[in-house]
Design a protein around this nucleic acid. Structure first.
Length: 425
RNA sequence: GGAGAGAUGGCAGAGUGGUCGAAUGCGGUAGUCUUGAAAACUAUUGUACUGCAAGGUACCGGGGGUUCGAAUCCCUCUCUCUCCGCCA
């Protein structure tokens, strides 16, 4: 969330900038400022009365020690009213704080100045298109959901039997290729300086709140109610929460962490032609990269992450394009997001395979993730970033479709050391 | 799942219901000494809110209560450890 200080000092900017996100912030901002002012004055009233109470109590203590019980009892009688006041003021203060928190959570992150205007994904700005290697597939081309049947490498019906729609069973070379991609992504991440972790894939409420999935986007996650835990929709949640309530040393920045995890999304929306095959699943595998960055360096870090993802897609020989998300499509918590899409040549569609975002201090403020340098008096909020590097199933779909030949599916060269085979046939 | 013990500052570890935001040790920072380092010595060293400042207030796992006054007493929740059971 935005910091109170920032909202107080930049009221007009907040309202103005959030219009790019198609968010009318005026009422919320006004409300926040009023609540905050109210909070301050109430707090100082409480402090003052409490201060009186404290000195009175001390006095009573002294009097009792000196054996002046009578005087002490006189002083005692004076405390009742104070006590009552303090109690009711505190109740009021709690109410204000609850309301203030509720309002603060309503404001999305301020978009970066380079975020283009726009209402939907159709208005995203294409930064770069690299389509030289879109293959000519000819008449017999098959979409990946046909290919996986033909070669018997993924079984959707079996997954449906075991769990439900959207939970595929990868089989044989399909399973092997999936694992190859994960290992390839992790090895490349390692080379780029990311530290690998294998985090929990169930998280508690505090973690969900820290990265912004809760309280609003509760519906996207599977909820294990008996223990009040959530299945992660992305490794961003457990990995970023490593740094919740932490103060890291300035000289250790940037902290670069990555994790492979399965991801779970309820996606309680449409389930039709557009989401066939691997295009959208309830469970899928992903390698996620996360950085905790110095505020002055976070856009440099974002560029580095984009370059890393681009490198991965290039090595796999997939046609891709890079999008700068417009105000209407960028997420609630992000300041600037780049999406990578690969071209899936039989569906003749661009598929989103990565989303790389800078959250600036928006998540950090929720997480209380701060850094401190030697010459700093107080710790300051760090910046957080994350990106998929990469989401596996759609990459798999593109590989299957783009690399299909009459003899079978050709495995990209960089993956062969990982798969141990170079054709699926 | 059953039984018991515990949770105090970066860490270790005291703490009688009343000058306790909290002894002491270690660590950190600055300085003295030294050619330099170590050692020793001296000082300093939590966080948040609020205020121009002086200061004020809150925080001893979380929440509630008793009391003029709670780290200390009571209730409750969470977590950790030990033992038992179950188990990859």
């Amino acid at each position: 969330m935005l910091t109170l200080k920032f909202i107080q000092e930049n009221k007009e900017t907040v309202i103005e900038r959030l219009k790019v996100k198609r968010f009318d912030a005026a009422a919320v901002v006004e409300n926040i400022i009023e609540l905050d002012n109210n909070r301050k004055s109430t707090q100082s009233e409480v402090d003052q009365q409490q201060s009186e109470m404290n000195s009175l109590s001390k006095e009573i203590g002294m009097l009792f020690k000196q054996g002046k019980a009578e005087e002490a009892n006189v002083a005692k009688s004076k405390t009742a009213e104070l006590k009552e006041n303090i109690k009711s003021l505190n109740t009021k203060l709690n109410e204000i704080n609850t309301q203030l928190d509720a309002e603060l959570v309503k404001l999305p992150n301020i978009p970066h100045p380079t975020v283009p205007e726009g209402n939907s994904d159709e208005d995203n700005q294409v930064e770069k298109t690299c389509d030289a290697n879109i293959p000519e597939l000819g008449e017999g081309k098959l979409p990946h959901w046909e290919l996986i049947k033909k070669y018997d490498i993924i079984d959707f019906e079996l997954g449906t039997k075991i769990a439900g729609a959207g939970f595929p069973v990868y089989k044989g070379k399909g399973a092997r290729l999936q694992r190859a991609l994960i290992n390839f992504f992790l090895d490349e991440g390692q080379k780029a300086g990311y530290n690998e972790v294998l985090p929990p894939i169930l998280v508690n409420e505090a973690s969900g709140f820290g990265t912004g999935q809760l309280p609003d986007k509760e519906g996207m996650m599977y909820h294990a109610t008996a223990d009040n835990l959530y299945l992660i929709p992305t490794a961003e949640v457990p990995v970023t929460n490593i740094y919740r309530d932490e103060v890291v040393k300035e000289e250790d920045l940037p902290l670069k962490t990555m994790a492979y995890t399965p991801c779970f999304r309820r996606e309680a929306g449409s389930w039709g032609a557009h989401v066939r095959g691997l295009n959208r699943l309830h469970q899928f595998d992903k390698v996620e990269i996360v950085q905790i960055s110095h505020p002055d360096k976070s856009y440099e870090a974002l560029d580095g992450m984009v370059a890393h993802v681009e490198n991965l897609v290039n090595k796999l020989g997939l046609p891709y394009r890079l999008l700068r998300l417009c105000g209407g499509d960028i997420s609630f918590t992000s300041a600037l997001t780049f999406d990578f899409e690969v071209f899936s040549a039989a569906q003749e569609r661009w598929l989103e395979v990565s989303s790389v975002s800078n959250f600036e201090n928006y998540q950090a403020n929720r997480l209380k993730c701060r850094y401190k340098g030697k010459d700093m008096k107080k710790p300051e909020l760090a910046h957080t970033l994350n990106g998929s590097a990469l989401a596996v199933p759609r990459i798999l779909a593109a590989i299957l479709e783009n690399n299909q030949t009459a003899d079978g599916i050709k495995i990209p060269e960089v993956l062969v050391p990982y798969t141990g085979f170079d054709m699926i046939n």
